[in-house]
């Protein structure tokens, strides 16, 4: 028996929005620790990693480990049938292993819907992600990062991110010319969410495909802040924390000189 109840049901809409450009299907792994998902995009350039800890749910029961192969397009159709203030419960029954049920309850309990969705048999590969001490970790407002990625993609297909202790510089070039956006570390901020904080061991310069960075920024509604972790010659980690529950992380392989 698996049952996970989320009063803030709209969170699932945000999570699906945050994966839609990268994934069409994925396996949700459910265990007593929580629900997680790890999947590469179809071109194997990036990796999506979602963690929703069991203690972040309003009720959670998972008697045995369970892998649910889910067509995310189908799940999106079903989750769209919920209202933003609905309580969502995800259920899977051991006697019926080929389906998952989504139950939506209106806050006043007057409307209750349930949708049963067929599961898929997915042959997914899990990648082992090594623990890494990153040379640079930048925390910045998620909306600011979204804006930078959008603006840089007006200029070129790639962005070079250069991070020093003074700030983070995004540069792009293309047929029309070049663009640079430099964001300094905040001197002092009233609101933590508006801060730009740079933790640095050594300066790093890396180049990434803007197409993917723009896909990642679909997660902006999940968190006020985003963190960018970088080390020379390894994938960038873009992390959006999901309050009191876990995270949505994206790993993006860098562009490397031929």
């Amino acid at each position: 028996m698996f049952e996970a109840r989320l009063v803030q049901g709209s969170l699932l809409k945000k999570i699906l929005e945050a994966t839609k450009d990268l994934l069409t299907e994925a396996t949700f792994d459910c265990s007593s620790t929580g629900m997680s998902l790890q999947a590469m995009d179809s071109s194997h350039v990036s990796l999506v990693s979602l963690m929703l800890r069991s203690d972040g749910f309003d009720a959670y029961r998972c008697d045995r480990n369970l892998s649910m192969g889910i067509n995310l397009t189908s799940m999106t159709k079903i989750i769209k049938c919920s209202s933003n203030d609905d309580v969502v419960t995800i259920k899977a029954d051991d006697n019926n292993p080929d389906t998952v049920t989504f139950m939506f309850e209106s806050p006043n309990q007057e409307k209750v819907s349930d949708f049963e969705m067929k599961l898929m048999d997915l042959d997914t590969e899990h990648l082992g992600i090594p623990e890494t001490d990153y040379s640079v970790v930048v925390k910045m407002p998620a909306q600011e990062f979204q804006r930078v990625c959008r603006d840089m993609s007006q200029i070129g297909e790639s962005v070079t991110i250069c991070c020093t202790k003074d700030g983070i510089r995004f540069s792009a070039s293309g047929d029309l010319g070049t663009g640079n956006i430099k964001i300094a570390q905040s001197a002092n901020v009233d609101k933590e969410e508006e801060a730009v904080v740079i933790e640095m061991q050594e300066a790093v310069t890396l180049t990434f495909a803007l197409r993917y960075l723009n896909f990642f920024t679909r997660a902006t509604s999940l968190s006020g802040q985003v963190s960018l972790s970088m080390s020379p010659e390894v994938p960038l980690v873009v992390e959006y924390k999901i309050a009191d529950m876990g995270y949505m992380r994206y790993y993006l392989a860098p562009k490397i000189e031929d």
């Binding site: 590969e125 899990h126 990648l127 490397i256 031929d258």
Partner: peptide, 14 residues
């Protein structure tokens, strides 16, 4: 032109 690397080049299949 720099080339796009593959993510599984960095993270091994478990």
């Amino acid at each position: 032109m720099p080339k796009q690397a593959n993510i599984s080049h960095y993270f091994k299949v478990r």
